[in-house]
Design a protein around this nucleic acid. Structure first.
Lengths: 253, 253
DNA sequence: GGAGTTCATTGACCAGGATCAATGACCGGC
DNA sequence: GCCGGTCATTGATCCTGGTCAATGAACTCC
């Protein structure tokens, strides 16, 4: 699962995209390519096209809030965070999403959630009930959805280990490794990372403070494992060493 | 210290289970009642019956390990924990399961998982591929599975908030509230709770140490919110107050 | 390209929970 | 019922990461 990155994933990172001149059919086509099974019946395809709505959000904007109709959202372009709100203004980023991801926020718990855009985003949104209703009669689609939800569950559980049992250094190193796998670009034996999220987002994702994030990044930089440039560019020089710090630091025994 | 509160909880709790004389058909029937949709075709029913295997585990025993064939497991009786292993012997309990729950462990991450019995368990296990393959042609079943996976995802995300942003007191109070909802018995305006897990399991679930769990329980007891008896019986006297402590303690501002 | 604002870094200090250590309760086996 | 091991509780101390505060870098807007 770790080790050899990106080659397949990286849609060469363009820094700050052109204004959204994309049309709905173009976005929908991206959705079709990324999500729909080959086998899908034409009728279902048309139904999906009819129920899908184009949506866009500027960086920092809210895409979905707690009271909203339950939606299934496809990220055609951009990046988002799913934030849970605890009392006292505390926030926990529960997941990040990037191009090609399918998001379903089913809030059955005691906390409220908000889906926010990290960058300018282009999205296709479906009313969840209609979407799943259709999927119910299209096993191929339902299966694809199940698979993606299982991936989300798996990611969420990996995050539980991080938040429950890892040190600040392990969390930050692990975060960089995960991001490298998801949105990194191979470069000179290392990996180039353009992080779409702020230090605060990282902190809220890792259960730390921005100060601790900053200190840990400094430490990794001084250890020669990463190099930084500006606020959001990170060059990972030694991925193996970073992976070691992500899980083994306190291993010793 | 604990002694004086014992009076609150009479010895009304039955200490457990008759030996497992249950037959596979009986267990399978429980599975059918709990999981299968009404609409399921007879053929599918028979196929499920054929692929399901009876399994049992004694308290503390391992049900599934990392290297095992990927299974879907139905808990007919007993309780289980799903544990993730981090380096240095650190463990994180990722989920608890009780009677009627359906478990799917799809480990796509960097850590290994073990499914363990907390009590003597009776289970029905299906090879995941066969099960999902059948479900693919039975939308009703696939939909039920999706629904349960979404519930797992939701629980996992609620847990992320707990581990990322809550204090020890909030975690323990929240844990008791959640357990009360899942396995509590209403009693005298409060709720009686027989916890099948040890302090260590609670600690590994909440990202704390057993000492901290113990101190927090003591504090809640001294505040009159709970009464304890023995190692595993807890009487929740004031659920509302406990809920308040679960989320609002640091609210103030 | 300079001013202003937001965001990140660094430092000093503090506290919540971990760790280490000892005692005590619970429960299972005879 | 007593004995032994395991598990839970309590106390003393330590340390990681949080908090508060100040400086500095980076991006935005004209």
């Amino acid at each position: 699962m770790t080790g050899k990155f990106c080659a397949c994933i990286a849609q060469s990172m363009q820094y700050h995209r052109a204004p959204a001149t994309t049309t709905f059919p173009e976005l929908f086509e991206l959705f079709v390519q990324a999500v729909l099974p080959q086998s899908l019946a034409d009728a279902a395809y048309l139904q999906l096209q009819a129920m899908g709505r184009y949506a866009s959000a500027v960086a920092g904007g809210v895409i979905l809030e707690d009271g909203d109709q339950h939606q299934v959202v496809f990220v055609a372009q951009g990046a988002t965070k799913l934030v849970a709100h605890a009392s006292g203004g505390r926030e926990q980023v529960v997941a990040f999403h990037f191009e090609g991801d399918l998001i379903s926020v089913s809030s059955r718990g005691a906390h409220s959630y908000t889906l926010c855009a990290l960058q300018d985003c282009e999205l296709v949104a479906f009313p969840a009930e209609d979407f799943l209703g259709l999927a119910r009669s299209e096993p191929g689609l339902l299966n694809e959805v199940l698979d993606r939800v299982l991936t989300s569950l798996s990611r969420s559980r990996e995050k539980l280990i991080t938040l429950g049992r890892k040190t600040a250094q392990e969390r930050v190193a692990g975060f960089l490794v995960t991001m490298a796998e998801r949105i990194g670009t191979p470069r000179e034996g290392g990996c180039l990372l353009h992080l779409p999220m702020s230090r605060r987002d990282m902190a809220d994702s890792l259960g730390l403070t921005i100060e601790t994030i900053s200190r840990q990044l400094t430490e990794l930089r001084e250890a020669g494992l990463i190099a930084t440039s500006g606020r959001s560019d990170v060059h990972i020089c030694d991925i193996a060493a970073l992976e070691a710090r992500a899980g083994q630091l306190a291993a010793a025994a």
